[in-house]
Structures are given as C-alpha cells and as structure tokens.
Design a protein around this nucleic acid. Structure first.
Lengths: 299, 299
DNA sequence: GACGCTTATGCTCCGATTCAGCATAATTGG
DNA sequence: CCAATTATGCTGAATCGGAGCATAAGCGTC
C-alpha cells in the first residue's frame, strides 16, 4: 500500500457587495469550486504565503485578512483510490474586486440558503428540511432527533447562526445534500460545489459569524469610510439576520468601535449620513471588540 | 529540490488536578514534548482517529473530547534541511489518569508562567518581561510597542486571557523564549519544550479559555458529580484568574448549566456541599452556554 | 414654499444581566 | 457550647441590551 499524501491549500474568500455576502469561486467542469493549489515545499515558506500565491494566480485577488480555518483530511474525501488528499483551508476577507476570468463572486446563500433569515425564517426549512430530517431521525433513537433540534432550532431550541457547520454536516449525514451522493436531492437544497468545498464554506460561515462578535474583522469588508447603515448591512448579511437599527448604532459608536469623520454621504435618498471610520485603538481599550449581534431567543 | 512533505499529528491533552491545569507530555532527549506521531494514510481513516491512535500508544490515555486546533507548517519549524514538516495539532480534554511510563502530567503554567494570575499579577511580568519588551520595542516604531501593550495589558489596555498565543508569539519574536535560540534567556521565562511544542500549548490555552465561555466543555475535565466549588476551581485554573464565588454559583445554576443532585460532599471541611451534575439539555435552551468569566477591566 | 416621503440620529424607558458584598446555614474541631 | 470554616441565599447598585418615540435633514411634488 503505502499511499502518498497530497497536501492542498484552499481559500474561502468572503466579500459583501450590494448587501449580499459572496464567496469567490472558480469554475471546474461546470461546477463551482474554491481556489485551490497544492502546497509547494520549495516555493512556499509558510502555508499562508502559499495560499496567497495560489489565490493571486487563480483569481488575481490579494486579500488583506487571512486566517487558517481547518484542515480536512478524512479518507472519504479522496476522489478515487490512490493518494490521500489533505487540504488546509484558509478564510480570507476582502473587498469585492474584479477577478480573472474563470473566477467569480457568488452569493454564499446560494449554497446555504437555509442560513439567510434576513427576510424571516426561510420557507424551505419548514417545507423541505424539517420533514426530511424528521423522516431521517424517526426510529433512530433520541440522539439524532436532539442533534437536529439543537442545530436547526426546533422544539423550543434557539436558532444559532454560528452552528452553520453543524447544520451542513447534519444535512450531509442525512443524505439531503447533493455532494453526499443521493441524487434525488439534486439542486433542491442549495447550489452544490465540487468535493467537500461546500463544507469548507459552511465552516467559514460559522467562523465569520462567531468572529465578528469579538474581533473587529468586519472592517476588512468595508471601505475606509462608511456609514453606520453600510456597516449594519454588512453585519446583517454575514449574520443572516436583521438587526435593530438604533441599538446597532449605539453599540458600535458607544462601544468605541468607530469614530465620526467630517465627511458626509449624500447618496442615501434621505438625510445625508455621516461617514465613519474604524477606530483601531479599540483593541487597546476593550478585551473583545466586535459588533453586537443579538442572541436570538427560541423560535 | 522537490522536498517531500512529512505530516505529523500532535496532541495537547489538558486536565485539571489539584486546582492545577496540566498538560500531558512525553520526555524526549531530556526535554518535554507533546505526544506525536506521523499520519499513516493506510491505518488512519480520519485525522482524529490517527491522533487517538498515537495518543493511546504513547500515553495509554483515551481522551473523551477532541477538537482540531491548528496546522503548523512554516518552513522555519523544520529541524534540519530535507523534508518539510507539517503538524496537525489537536486539543483534547481529559480527566487526569495514570499514564504509561515516559509520559506525565505537568502544570501548564510551568511553561507559560505569566499566564497565571490567580495569585495576582505575576511578578515576573514587571520584573522581567516588561523591561525586556520595552528594550525590544524601543526605536522600532509604534506598531511594535502597541502590539506589546495590547497583548500584555500595558498602558491602560486590559489583560485578556484569550490572547495567550499572541503573548507567546511576541515573546518568541522578541527573542525572550528559549526555543527562539537566544540562549541568554535560558530557563528564565518558563520551562521550554522541543521544537514549537510550546507554541502549540499556548494555542491550546487560548482556545480553551475562549471555548469554556460559550461551550460546556469544562465538564470534560470534571467527574460526573462535582461541587460548585470544584467547578469554580477548574474554571479559575483554566482562566488563570480568580472568580467571585457567589456570582459564579448563580451564573452556572441559574444559567441552567448544572442541576443539583440529592448527594452531598462531606469532605469540604465546613458545611457539606451539594453535588451537581452537568445539564446536557442546556444546549437546547441557550445558544452558547458556558461558564461566565468576567471581562477584566484595564489594569 | 408647504407637504409628504425617506433616511439619519438622538434619547428614553425597561427588563435582564452582572458585580460586589452582606447574611445565614451547616458542618468540624476544640 | 464556641469558634472556625465552608456552603448557600439574597439584596442593591451598575451596566447592558432590546424596543420604540421623537426629531433632524435631505429629496421630490404640487
């Protein structure tokens, strides 16, 4: 035997444009995939530099913020027999910019539509996902049912945006995801990706939703100057839920996360909005500065 | 050229005994290291199973809770020339148990003594670390100084337990850590480990301190039944700081994290303490149940 | 220019949570 | 019985987060 190990680098590059969170994808065989390239021990002194190298080459983009997300290496992700394929996945935050042809920005919620609660609870949850999960959990002990309830906020449990990965894994395990091989579900529960790239996306969404609460990473997605409404729309896009406008303003301004400038934005349609900028000093004042997202009570 | 890639698995196994957080180490060449073994693509269907396999073989331990921590792969961690060494590091939580000879439990704060604030601010911070960092930051622009202040809670910034990794990295970068090669500091700033294993430990400490806030993982370190005082001591040991007793009790009990049993512990020396157990149902009621640690105000 | 529409922004009220300390209960060892 | 020790309950101040009202400042229409 003695299979060899192939080590790849993947990037989940996130941007928010037109109030929509998007991920940078590259087309492959007519299906979507994430930017990818093998680690080259000679050319890449660090993993992160290797990743940036591949991203630049495949998409033309040079993201600012990059952090390691997870390393996927289970055997069942190998395409055929032969080598064992591991992938070290990074999360990157960027402002949307033109890309090389072949790459493009796609709404994250095209792939994970049940995660977008901004227009209320997605109807597909009740119409498709809940019945299917019920069938899957029926007669399989209470553990499975309980996992479904916790992940999807059923039976009195609250919906937690940060459990996006758990939800994806449950749907996958239940055979409701294209990638799991059950052709019957084809196209129904969100757009598919190659290999386990959609799982990577779900991992990234979970991480981002958690992270914006306690680290000011959201400003990586915004221009230097922005209105509080723009900031709120980006936070809502990532969190997948609406926020209370006045309270959001108070939290970020009283929290010292932003500071007002003299400039105004007159394109709002109503009263002009003041332009703000990120206050980098906040990390010296508070232990975990981030945008306050509400902990939704139960459904 | 064409260097090959060697893929290893490391475990940071944490337990708390006698009010002291400990890590499981194995001796190598008279120095401490973490349990380690190469990934075997044939024997290990998943990374986690591979890790558990190595841990059991080297220490005799079978930890309950395991999660992936980080993948280290920068070139500068390779011992000599030749292959590129990557390591996928896992965090495990366990109850302390006897181990095979060669392995043993060591206090985490032996390696990272500046992280233990339970007896007040460690004197070494003012006596050794602050002066050395000042010298290192002097004349190197404000960015370096600012990083030191944020990481170590200087100049009005608060001390944040979760920044343990940032602190270790700063000390390393400043040449104040044995492992960074500056022999002058030998033994002064905590016990050393082989390779970059102390960095892995710092990563694990950061993760644990963050995680106990919003996931009930702390119960992995406790027996089935425990008193609230035992629970608090474990939380204090990990957080590296003292907590207010009455409030801690109220947070965990009113928060639904634990439930009282009929049993009592009479070994307390004073009034017997009620024994509690973890309430697993709490994850269905609250989005992020964990033990409440105070966000320390500035120093 | 008055009016209505839209968006921005400031402020209040209230309930929940957190912080700090006091008070009381139930043991043990003299 | 008393003092010491530990567990546990409770109270009041301070803070935070949630929901809404009120006002400001632009636009277009008549």
């Amino acid at each position: 035997m003695t299979r060899r190990i192939a080590l790849g680098l993947n990037a989940v590059i996130v941007a928010v444009t037109a109030d929509e969170p998007r991920v940078l994808t590259v087309g492959r065989d007519g299906r979507d995939g994430l930017p990818y390239g093998p680690l080259d021990p000679d050319r890449h002194p660090t993993l992160e530099l290797g990743l940036r190298d591949w991203v630049r080459g495949q998409t033309g983009l040079q993201p600012g913020y990059v952090e390691q997300l997870y390393t996927f290496g289970d055997r069942d992700r190998d395409p055929g027999g032969g080598d064992r394929h591991l992938s070290i996945v990074y999360l990157a935050l960027a402002r949307e910019a033109p890309t090389l042809s072949g790459a493009g920005w796609r709404p994250i919620y095209d792939y994970l539509p049940w995660e977008d609660w901004r227009e209320g609870r997605p109807a597909m949850l009740r119409r498709e996902i809940e019945p299917a999960l019920s069938r899957w959990a029926a007669g399989a002990g209470t553990a499975r049912l309980s996992r479904c309830q916790v992940a999807f906020g059923l039976g009195g449990a609250p919906w937690d945006g940060e459990r996006a990965l758990k939800r994806y894994e449950l749907l996958y395990e239940a055979g409701l995801i294209d990638e799991s091989g059950a052709g019957a579900a084809r196209g129904v529960r969100g757009r598919a990706m190659i290999l386990d790239h959609r799982r990577m996306l779900a991992t990234a969404l979970s991480r981002v939703r958690g992270k914006i609460r306690y680290r000011p990473v959201i400003f990586e997605l915004l221009p230097e100057l922005f209105t509080l409404w723009q900031l709120q729309r980006v936070a809502e896009a990532l969190a997948g839920q609406r926020l209370h406008k006045q309270n959001f303003r108070r939290l970020v301004s009283h929290g010292g996360l932003v500071e007002a400038t003299e400039k105004m934005d007159r394109e709002t349609g109503g009263r002009p909005a003041r332009l703000f900028r990120f206050r980098a000093e906040v990390v010296r004042e508070r232990p975990s500065p981030g945008v306050g997202l509400p902990r939704l009570p139960s459904t």
